[in-house]
Amino acid sequence: MDVTPTGSPETAAGPLVSAAAVVENGRLLVVSKTAAPGLFYLPGGKPEPGETAREALVRELGEELGMRPRSLTPLTEIRATAALEGVPMTMTVFRATLEGRPAPAAEIAALRWTDGTGLDLAPAVRDHVLPLVL
């Protein structure tokens, strides 16, 4: 899996995204953004030019959840259609543990812990991440 710096947050395969799969007590942490309050994603976001996927995720977790990861381990790379934008994306997912309790910040409207039921999950999360972590 390529976690090297990028010259741009876009590739021929669409936007690059770094995301965290945080699992506690058999539940996955998901967030909804103010732009799409009913749809839940993994916390994370797009790397800035020159950032590695790992660096982008550390920054995004600080901005979105107000915390740093205790550990980040590469889990998978997913090529899928972005749920909101409807364009192809490449998402690098890290298995993560967090220090403390996350709280919504920045563009995050809400966070939830899910076993995969009862929430409208982004297709990449539902179809690719859940089977790997739960």
Results as ranks from 00 to 15, higher is better:
Ser18Gly: 14
Ala80Val: 13
Leu98Arg: 13
Ala83Arg: 10
Val22Tyr: 12
Leu134Asp: 05
Gly14Cys: 02
Leu132Thr: 15
Gly26Met: 09
Ala35Met: 11
Trp113Asn: 08
Arg101Met: 04
Arg68Glu: 06
Gly116Lys: 01
Gly50Ala: 05
Ala13Asp: 13
Gly38Met: 05
Thr73Arg: 14
Leu134Tyr: 01
Ala124Gly: 09
Ala124Val: 12
Val133Leu: 00
Gly44Asn: 05
Ala122Met: 11
Thr76Glu: 10
Thr6Asn: 09
Leu16Tyr: 10
Arg59Asp: 00
Leu61Lys: 07
Thr4Asn: 04
Gly118Asp: 00
Leu42Phe: 02
Val125Phe: 02
Pro15Cys: 06
Leu98Asn: 12
Val3Ile: 13
Ala21Glu: 00
Arg95Leu: 07
Val129Arg: 08
Trp113Glu: 03
Ser18Thr: 14
Thr52Trp: 12
Gly7Phe: 02
Pro123Leu: 00
Ala109Cys: 11
Lys46Asp: 05
Gly7Cys: 07
Thr117Tyr: 07
Glu48Phe: 03
Glu55Ala: 14
Ala21Asn: 01
Val87Thr: 15
Lys46Trp: 09
Ser8Gln: 06
Phe94His: 05
Phe94Ala: 01
Ala106Gly: 10
Arg68Lys: 03
Val58Ala: 08
Thr34Trp: 07
Met89Ser: 14
Arg95Ser: 13
Leu132Tyr: 00
Gly100Thr: 15
